[in-house]
Nucleic acid binder design. Structure first.
Length: 317
DNA sequence: GACAGGTCGCCTATTACATCA
DNA sequence: GGTGATGTAATAGGCGACCTG
């Protein structure tokens, strides 16, 4: 997977190689767009609609795989990026000598070292930069067994990664390397950031889904309670207010234990016109098909998920 | 073609650290 | 200044896909 650009190349060759790579990346991006590569979205209540990911967003921040990122940032008025790039101090690490060694996990980033000061996103201040650099050094040391130090990405870096994440929830190796180069991070850091970002998105979506299902459950419970009450009122009405009313069949209300839907069962032989109509319409007591509306010739009330499927299986609407 | 071994990318759970109230 | 809560960078382990001999 390692791209092995760092060793044995003259500067000119490196530049040509990088230009070719960026062209390839742009082609890849175009391919991805045109093939309708779907953004990662969960089925319920999409958290970030696709229309919020305009294809221009990459150029707005000037991702490495788009043309002339720095110029794009400048053209888009992204002054902080340009200015920080112009300031040119390192963010997280000073690529170490061993990074250039073959097989080092940092070898890719180090291959872009010469461009860092011109393109990279700088930290908020020299103090921060120094701190970050020391953190990065500690991170390097950690690879040699020392305790790991945690660095925090700058706001600019985070914003940049966020924009990139809106564009793609996953990165191919080229995009990863390009982004790392642009942000002056190691590709591994970019990869980890995307992994954690996906995890956060998923967690958030799960919470939203959970909340949604909870509300559905509450609604159904309330509806059930209301229907039970209405039924008892109608029964009372039947016995007191309409002595001449033809005897309604005794209807037993039973509840499906899994979905809490009610089912009626007619137990007497005397029928009313309404009941006969209901019987003609399919009979009462069939699974999840009985309807108080048909029984009493009332207009059907709105009931969520009443159409055909089980509530738990079709909450998408 | 089937299979084992290696590599890679991703997911998930967890840890460790920085920051803030 | 100490402390707990929170956010998040980083790590570890597992899994599936893919490639190669």
């Amino acid at each position: 997977m390692e791209l092995g650009l760092s060793l044995g190349y003259g500067r000119r060759e490196e530049e040509e190689e990088e230009e070719a790579e960026e062209e390839e990346m742009m082609e890849d991006m175009e391919e991805a767009r045109s093939s309708g590569e779907p953004p990662v979205q969960l089925s319920l209540l999409p958290s970030v609609p696709a229309h919020r990911f305009p294809s221009s967003s990459s150029s707005r921040l000037g991702f490495a795989w788009t043309a002339d990122n720095t110029a794009a940032a400048a053209a888009a008025g992204n002054g902080s990026l340009v200015a920080s790039a112009a300031r040119g101090f390192d963010v997280n690490r000073v690529p170490s000598a061993e990074d250039a060694e073959e097989g080092s996990p940092n070898s890719i980033a180090s291959s872009f070292r010469t461009d860092f000061s011109a393109i990279g996103i700088a930290a908020r201040g020299e103090g921060v930069a120094a701190e970050r650099a020391s953190s990065a050094r500690a991170s390097d040391e950690e690879e040699n067994g020392a305790a790991r130090k945690k660095l925090r990405l700058s706001k600019e870096q985070s914003a940049f990664l966020e924009e990139s994440f809106k564009e793609h929830h996953t990165l191919n190796p080229k995009q990863k390397v390009a982004l790392a180069k642009q942000l002056n991070l190691r590709p591994r850091q970019v990869e980890v950031w995307f992994q954690n970002r996906r995890a956060r998105t998923k967690l958030k979506q799960t919470e939203v889904d959970c909340e949604y299902l909870k509300r559905c459950c509450e609604t159904l419970t309330e509806e059930n309670r209301r229907l039970q009450k209405e039924l008892s009122e109608l029964r009372a009405l039947k016995t007191t207010s309409h002595p001449f009313f033809m005897q309604l069949p005794a209807t037993t209300l039973s509840m499906c234990p899994s979905c809490e839907r009610t089912t009626t069962t007619t137990t007497t032989t005397t029928t009313t016109a309404a009941n006969a109509a209901a019987a003609n319409a399919g009979g009462s007591g069939s699974k999840h098909a009985s309807s108080f509306a048909s029984l009493f010739r009332k207009k059907p009330r709105f009931f969520p998920f009443v159409s055909s499927s089980h509530p738990a299986t079709s909450p998408a609407s």
